[in-house]
Design a protein around this nucleic acid. Structure first.
Length: 425
RNA sequence: GUGGGUGUAGCUCAGUUGGCAGAGCGCUAGGUUGUGGUCCUGGAUGUCGAGGGUUCGAGCCCCUUCACUCACCCCA
């Protein structure tokens, strides 16, 4: 048997209604807030991700699906979407038309990690990005947007974690302070943190090893080292969120694994998924557009983990039951099958959800099937004694039945079903 | 990449010191020749994850491997 490759999976018909619910809620909300959809390639030049995400990040170092195409050029299955959105903004000089762009996109991302609950090698994200606005109100708006989306989806046990990572001015000061601190605690840190010290010192802040936590107790934080601009910015974000009734938690250990983030960083966390607690995350990346060859332009964005979100929702509400057909047609006898097919098709074309049988089964088994499909009504077309058997329409919930005229019953059925002549429940 | 757990019917899972492959659900056909859900009866369905080894004999023991799963790591 040929199976999916490791870490890849099928989203089966039983699960897709839930995914569609999420996707519709998200695009509806984003459109209301003035975002436009952008659709992007799944494959980009490797260089794009190496330069944006950062050469020394785990994503770029060991998780990307990178291979040479047939002409030897290195290409990569996108591990995230922001780099592509930025590339597109620059490539099409969107800033020349209007520097302010609010864009969203959804689709699969690829990272070759060890699969686990809520972590797949192909996973789906919904991304939203705002270019050209430096104001902290936009930071607040994106968090408000996430908060509202989750609220609309019926999720309440989610927490927004918030931090500020500083900017080009204050980050170097913080780095120096942190490095000095780490050097003084070196012998008490775990082996991972020893390695992180020079590679990616920020990450030592959210290490979960108890010994490290203790050693890092009074480590310098980004918040203590913010320059006055960053501090003002962060204060405004918090004040605005409070004014809008969005609850959040300032989490000074929140750091993000992509190098391009600056100032505001945030994550929406859940307790429902074990270790994979983040269902959405994002932040400001004011330097990235310029670093990728565009103009100096502020930017901020977030990504929602669709797989995780769907998982959390399924745990809370289960998957919505699929709606059965409005009508199941039961043909009895050879000529009935043709009439059933023609009638069913006409109903489908008229917007009535109709199904019929093509296998010539018994009345009993087809009634069972109508029941299993959760059909609203059953129509019995009995041609075995053509002169005396008129079509019968049965309401499956009330068991009420009416006998229709001998001729083609399609129009009458459309009338009855669309006028609720026979109430369904 | 590291460590633990699990692989038996479509699904959830039993399977004794190594001795004929099982249950429930689901599927399917019936239950006085025109009607579903409950109930009753019959039926079909297995590379016991894969490969090798030990043995008269392996679902069970040993080795290898793959997948799933949880955690680390990392992230959404």
């Amino acid at each position: 048997m040929i199976q999916t490759i490791r870490g890849f999976r099928d989203i089966l018909p039983g699960e897709t209604p839930l995914w569609q619910t999420i996707e519709r809620a998200a695009s509806q909300l984003f459109e209301d807030f003035g975002f436009q959809e952008i659709r992007l390639p799944l494959i980009e030049r490797t260089e794009l991700f190496a330069r944006s995400i950062g050469e020394v990040t785990d994503i770029v170092e060991k998780e990307m699906y990178t291979f040479p195409d047939r002409k030897g050029e290195n290409i990569t299955l996108r591990p995230e979407a922001t780099a592509s959105v930025v590339r597109s903004y620059i490539q099409h000089k969107m800033y020349a038309v209007d520097p302010i762009q609010k864009l969203y996109t959804m689709g699969p991302m690829f990272r070759r990690e060890r699969p686990q609950k809520g972590r797949y090698r192909q996973f789906f994200q919904i991304n939203a990005e705002v270019f050209g606005i430096a104001s902290p109100y936009i930071d607040a708006q994106l968090i408000l947007l996430l908060n509202e989306l989750f609220k609309r989806l019926g999720l309440t046990d989610l927490r927004a974690h918030l931090n500020s990572l500083g900017c080009r001015e204050c980050r170097p000061l913080f780095h120096r302070a942190l490095s000095e601190f780490l050097a003084s605690k070196q012998d008490r840190l775990c082996s991972d943190c020893q390695r992180r010290m020079d590679k990616n010192p920020l990450r030592t802040l959210d290490c979960k090893v108890p010994g490290c936590r203790e050693a890092m107790q009074d480590a310098p934080t980004t918040l203590d080292h913010l320059c006055s601009h960053c501090a003002d910015h962060f204060e405004t974000v918090k004040r605005t969120l409070k004014a809008q009734g969005v609850s959040f938690l300032v989490d000074k250990t929140l750091v993000r694994g992509l190098d391009y983030y600056s100032r505001t960083a945030f994550e929406i966390q859940t307790t429902a998924l074990g270790a994979q607690s983040a269902v959405a995350g994002g932040g400001r990346y004011d330097a990235l557009i310029q670093e990728l060859g565009g103009p100096e332009m502020p930017a901020i964005g977030f990504a929602i983990g669709l797989d995780r979100l769907a998982e959390v929702m399924a745990q809370i509400k289960g998957c919505p039951a699929s709606r059965g057909p409005d009508l199941f047609i039961i043909p009895l006898g050879q000529t009935a099958m043709e009439q059933a097919y023609l009638c069913s098709s006409r109903l489908n074309l008229a917007g009535v959800r109709s199904e019929t049988d093509y296998n010539g089964k018994s009345l009993k088994s087809l009634m069972k099937r109508a029941d299993k499909l959760n059909a609203g009504h059953a129509l019995i077309l009995d041609h075995r004694q053509p002169d005396k058997n008129a079509p019968v329409l049965r309401n499956m919930t009330t068991r009420e039945q009416v006998t229709l005229a001998l001729e083609d019953p399609t129009d009458e059925i459309i009338k009855i079903l669309t006028n609720k002549g026979l109430p369904r429940d």
